[in-house]
């Protein structure tokens, strides 16, 4: 996305012209500075207040006294299980969809256009609506109740558009020379895809998966009424479990005196997301796709 930079500064003769130039420059620098400063404020605040509460035992111990004591061991465990359910459904579904969408060389079949439009709408669906849907469909109609499974499946629906979009980009980015070479060697479409295209696209495909993990980790509203609140370590996928983000919400809003532990948990979550951000960048770099970003959703 980082296009060329344009140096358009010109030496200016009159004073009358310098005034708007000067004020625009000041305004733009101040706006950018404000954004960066606020972000820095948030990150430093999380780090300063969070790290003082952090210790290795915090990551392992169970949640005690509604979270005011103990650690976040079961919460981390539940989060991991939810993510695994999410990826187990979302990866195959999105890969297959991306394959179908990139099937035609000229890209723009009506089928692909309509599928993409549906996915665009899906990407815009508010997360609380995913919560309503997951609650009505997975929890009640399919009888899965408030559970890891319900939460994971709901999140899978939510990350699907991002994962499909990134997979599609990864597949399209494989140089056509590979496809021509494979075709000239008499490989059929599926052999070309599985033997040549997908292996070449692997780093970028991975980057999409990592990005989706980030989105899923950040999600709260869709989980409250699907995976639920229970802070115990889940025994099975049909048990309720609390994700990191839900834990932060609960500690901040519902537990008097939970603020400092909420900060510690937020610190863990943000650290995980920073690691994910760095991994995505590295993977895209490895795939030669650096500089591609996908607009965010909190």
């Amino acid at each position: 996305m980082s296009g060329g930079r344009f140096h358009a500064s010109a030496t200016t003769p009159t004073r009358r012209h310098q005034i708007p130039e000067f004020f625009t420059a000041v305004a733009v620098w101040m706006a950018a500075g404000l954004v960066v400063a606020t972000l820095a404020w948030i990150l430093i605040d999380i780090a300063v207040r969070g790290i003082s509460q952090l210790s290795p035992s915090f990551l392992i111990e169970g949640v005690e006294d509604a979270g005011r004591a103990g650690g976040i061991g079961p919460v981390l465990f539940s989060t991991m299980l939810i993510l695994m359910v999410t990826l187990a459904l979302a990866i195959p579904l999105s890969l297959a969809t991306a394959i179908a969408l990139t099937e035609r060389v000229d890209q723009d079949s009506r089928f692909a256009r309509n599928v993409r439009r549906c996915l665009d709408v899906l990407a815009g669906v508010p997360s609380i609506v995913f919560g309503l849907f997951g609650n009505a469909f997975f929890a009640i109609m399919l009888g899965l109740g408030y559970s890891i499974l319900t939460g994971g499946l709901t999140l899978a629906c939510m990350v699907l558009p991002i994962l499909i979009r990134t997979s599609e980009q990864a597949i399209v980015a494989v140089p056509n020379e590979y496809r021509y070479a494979a075709a000239a060697l008499g490989l059929g479409r599926s052999a070309t895809l599985f033997r040549v295209v997908l292996p070449a696209a692997a780093p970028a495909l991975m980057a999409g998966v990592v990005l989706s993990i980030g989105r899923a980790l950040a999600e709260t509203a869709a989980l409250i009424f699907t995976a639920g609140y229970v802070a115990r370590r889940p025994e099975s996928l049909l048990d309720s479990g609390r994700s990191l983000s839900v834990h932060i919400y609960d500690m901040a809003m519902n537990v008097p005196g939970g603020g400092s532990r909420a900060y510690a948990t937020a610190c863990v979550l943000v650290a995980l997301l920073l690691a994910i951000n760095a991994t995505t960048t590295l993977l895209l770099h490895a795939a030669g796709l650096q500089g591609r970003s996908v607009g965010g959703k909190g």
């Binding site: 020379e177 590979y178 021509y180 070479a181 494979a182 000239a184 060697l185 040549v196 070449a200």
Partner: peptide
């Protein structure tokens, strides 16, 4: 078989 202008090994 076909050989391309630019070498294109995988």
């Amino acid at each position: 078989g076909m050989i391309f202008q630019k070498p294109n090994p995988f």
